[in-house]
Nucleic acid binder design. Structure first.
Lengths: 145, 145
DNA sequence: TTGCGTGCAAAGGTTTTGCATGGCA
DNA sequence: TGCCATGCAAAACCTTTGCACGCAA
C-alpha cells in the first residue's frame, strides 16, 4: 500500500521549504530555484510528483492566481476542522487565514437551507485584503470595496 | 484610444457563443471547435486576444477548474451590482449564480468589521453543488458536506 | 535485494509573440 | 488610406510520461 513511501532527501527538502513558507504560495519553479540556491538540486519532475502526493494527502492547497499561468501551492494541513471553517486569502501578501467564525458557518447553512446550494468549504476561498495589508497601503487603496 | 476597436465577424462570433453559453464555462478549444462546426473558422490566437479584452472589460470571468489544465471562460456581465453580491459556482454543471442575499452581505461586513479582512466580491467565488445537481445525484452523493 | 524514488529527455498541451496579410472605418 | 484585426508559424511555458539508474529499507 505504500502508506508513506521512502523518506528521501528531496522529499524532506521540499516539505521543509513548504512548511517554512506557510504564509505564502509558491510555484514549482520557485521551489526549484530556492533549492538550487541551497545547493540541493531537485528535478522539477520530482517536485511535481511530491506536490501531487501532498495534494492527495490534503497537506497542500493548489491555487491559480489572477494573471499567472503556473499553479501555486501552499502548505496547509487540511484536517477535519477545515471542513468547518472558511479560508481567507490575501491578494496582496498571499497569507492564508483559517477563519473560525459562527457568522460564516451560519451563512453557509442559510445558503444551503434557503438557496439549496451546498458550499464546498474545502474548495472555496475568500479573496481580499487582510488587515495588515490594508493598513499598510492606506495611500493607494486599490480594491478594498 | 480605441475604446472598442473595430467590429469584426470573428469578434461577433466569439461573443455570441459566449452569450449563448452563459450557464457554463468554456475553454478556448471548445470555442474554436464550435465555431469550426459553424463553418466560421477563427484562429485560437484571435480567441485568446478577444478573451483578454473581454476580461479587462469585465464581461467574462476566468476560471481554473479542478483537474483541468486549460483555463475556462464564462460570460458574466460584471456590473456595479456584482460588487455587492456573491457568486456561487456549481462544480458539477458549471452554472454561475448571482446571489443577492442579505445574510451574505451582512457576513461580509462582519468579516471586515471584526476580522479586518476586506472581501473582494468581484474575485471571490463560492464553489459547491447547486440544488438541481444535488437532487439529480442523490445516489452518489459526493462532497456536499 | 527489492522496489520505490529520481532525473533527464522528450512528449503533450496551452498560451504568447512576430510578422505579413486582411479588412473595417 | 490608415490602422487595427487576423492567422499562421514558431516560440515560450508548464506539466506529464518513459525509462534507466539511484537509493532507502
Amino acid at each position: 500500500m505504500s502508506n508513506n513511501g521512502y523518506k528521501t532527501k528531496q522529499q524532506q527538502a521540499i516539505l521543509k521549504f513548504l512548511m517554512n513558507n506557510q504564509d505564502s504560495h509558491v510555484t514549482v519553479s520557485q521551489i526549484s530555484d530556492y533549492l538550487e540556491t541551497e545547493n540541493t538540486h531537485v528535478g522539477v519532475t520530482t517536485i511535481y510528483r511530491h506536490l501531487d502526493k501532498l495534494l492527495e494527502k490534503g497537506l497542500v492547497r493548489k491555487y491559480t492566481v489572477d494573471g499567472t499561468t503556473s499553479a501555486c501551492f501552499q502548505y496547509s494541513n487540511l484536517n477535519a476542522e477545515c471542513k468547518q471553517h472558511f479560508h481567507l486569502k490575501c491578494e496582496k501578501c498571499g497569507k492564508l487565514i483559517h477563519l473560525n467564525c459562527s457568522h460564516a458557518a451560519e451563512m453557509c447553512r442559510h445558503i444551503y437551507d434557503e438557496h439549496g446550494f451546498g458550499v464546498d468549504l474545502f474548495r472555496t476561498v475568500f479573496y481580499g485584503i487582510c488587515s495588515e495589508c490594508s493598513t499598510k497601503s492606506e495611500h493607494n487603496k486599490e480594491m478594498v470595496l
